[in-house]
Simulated assay, not measured.
Amino acid sequence: MWTQLGFYTHYFGDYFFTQFPLYYFWPLSEQGFLYSGAVPLWHPSNKVFQWISVAALMFFAVKNKRTPIEIISEKWDKKVIASF
């Protein structure tokens, strides 16, 4: 379920918030789809999404006492969490 949610939200974001054609049916078709009202990556709305993502990552890292650093070193992860 979470994988599908992640896939479809990414699909939605790429379609409406980038100005790159998307090739949904590749390799069966090389026709690209591009929404005429799509905004460029440097548009303020995309910056808002970026900052919300960073804030959400920080929130869940502190709430769950885990960070992506845990993949590299559990000791470093504990030091990062302790700093908050």
Rank of each mutant, 00 (worst) to 15 (best):
I72P: 02
Q4A: 15
G32E: 04
T9Y: 14
K65N: 07
E74N: 08
E70G: 02
S36M: 03
Y11M: 14
Y11A: 11
Y24W: 09
K75Y: 08
V62D: 05
Q31A: 11
Y11P: 10
G37A: 14
P68M: 04
M1K: 12
L34R: 09
F16E: 01
K65P: 06
H43I: 00
A82E: 01
Y23F: 12
S53D: 05
S36P: 03
Y11I: 11
W76Y: 11
G37P: 08
F20N: 13
V54I: 15
F16C: 00
D77E: 03
V54T: 02
W42M: 08
Q19K: 14
W2C: 09
K75D: 10
T9W: 14
L22Y: 02
G37R: 12
H10S: 13
L28V: 13
F59I: 05
Q50K: 09
V62E: 08
K79N: 06
Y23K: 04
T3M: 11
F84Q: 07
F25Q: 11
T18H: 00
A61W: 07
T18K: 00
R66F: 09
W2K: 12
F16S: 01
I69P: 01
V54Q: 02
P44S: 01
S53Q: 11
F12A: 03
P44C: 02
F17C: 14
T3S: 11
I72C: 03
I71Y: 08
A82M: 01
F20K: 13
W76V: 04
W76R: 07
F7E: 13
L57D: 03
K78E: 15
S53W: 06
Q31I: 15
S36Q: 09
I52L: 12
A38I: 01
L28N: 13
V48H: 02
L57W: 04
L57T: 10
Y15A: 03
S36K: 13
Y11F: 15
F20L: 15
A61G: 03
L34N: 03
M58D: 07
S83G: 02
A56I: 10
E70D: 07
F84R: 05
F25Y: 12
F84E: 03
Y23R: 05
T18I: 00
F49E: 02
L57V: 08
Y24M: 08
I69C: 05
V48Y: 06
S53T: 14
H43D: 01
S73K: 02
N64Q: 10
L5Q: 15
F17V: 14
T18V: 00
M1I: 14
K75H: 07
Y11K: 14
Y23T: 08
E30W: 10
N64Y: 10
F7D: 13
T18S: 01
Q50W: 14
P68N: 04
I71Q: 09
M1P: 12
M58P: 07
M1T: 13
N64V: 04
W51F: 12
